[in-house]
């Protein structure tokens, strides 16, 4: 489903060039569950941003469902993000003035879907997250875990094939973090391709594949037969 070939990405900082990604090659199958781990600054977020079409590689190719995304223009990339990719961020990124339902509804509004259908889908998504009674609450009236589940509902409302989560538990306590991970895994079980960046080895080891990054390069991969396995 996804194929990265020889991806390079560097940033100019002053007169220095920071190589955030070096010759990254990666294949993901539909329904995969992958965690990306590595020290701070190793390029995990940069890789995720490129997977999510928020960033473009300097060189290399990124095939998403047979399409070479490096040939798409900005508008097409926005449409691809809207229809095929969901994002979950460490700091939730909910719009503070909108309530939970309105935040979840945003991607549907952008896609130009009719209000009637929108309301139905939002209600269903919130129910799935166990947040039906919080639909009218604004983010500041929700706990961290609830906020992240609203964000997950928003990320999945368009039924994307790919769900990207950058340290989704980074701002949460252990209990809420576990709930969020379980929610993501449940979505994976229904067929969504899930990529999670994390610093937490316990969370990382739950994935069926763990990719280890150092200094912008993939230095190793730990494949596992089944998700939710024990720590090696």
């Amino acid at each position: 489903m996804i194929r990265l070939e020889q991806i390079n990405r560097s940033f100019e900082v002053g007169d220095e060039t920071v190589h955030a990604l070096r010759d990254v090659t990666l294949d993901l199958a539909t329904g995969d569950y992958i965690s990306i781990m590595g020290p701070s600054g190793s390029g995990k977020s940069t890789l995720l941003n490129i997977l999510g079409l928020l960033d473009q590689p300097d060189s290399g190719h990124y095939f998403l469902d047979e399409t070479d995304t490096t040939t798409l223009n900005e508008t097409d990339q926005a449409v691809a993000r809207r229809d095929h990719i969901g994002f979950v961020f460490q700091s939730f990124h909910l719009i503070p003035r909108l309530n939970a339902a309105q935040n979840v509804e945003l991607p549907l509004i952008l896609a130009g879907i009719e209000p009637g259908e929108r309301a139905e889908r939002v209600a269903k998504a919130l129910e799935l997250m166990g947040l039906s009674d919080r639909a009218k609450h604004r983010p500041d009236q929700l706990s961290g875990g609830q906020r992240q589940r609203v964000a997950i509902a928003r990320a999945t409302i368009m039924q994307p094939a790919l769900l990207l989560a950058d340290e989704p538990t980074g701002n949460l306590d252990k209990h809420s973090g576990d709930e969020v991970i379980q929610t993501l895994e449940a979505l994976n079980q229904q067929g969504i391709t899930l990529v999670v960046v994390t610093h937490d080895p316990e969370i990382g080891s739950r994935a069926s594949r763990t990719i280890r990054m150092v200094d912008g390069a993939i230095v190793g991969e730990i494949p596992r037969s089944s998700p939710g396995g024990t720590t090696p």
Binding site: L54, R81, F87, L110, A155
Partner: peptide, 16 residues
């Protein structure tokens, strides 16, 4: 800014 970034991330086009 964060809101605009988010709208872009979830598929908002430049002209939108």
């Amino acid at each position: 800014t964060a809101e605009i970034g988010l709208i872009k991330a979830i598929g908002g086009k430049r002209e939108e």
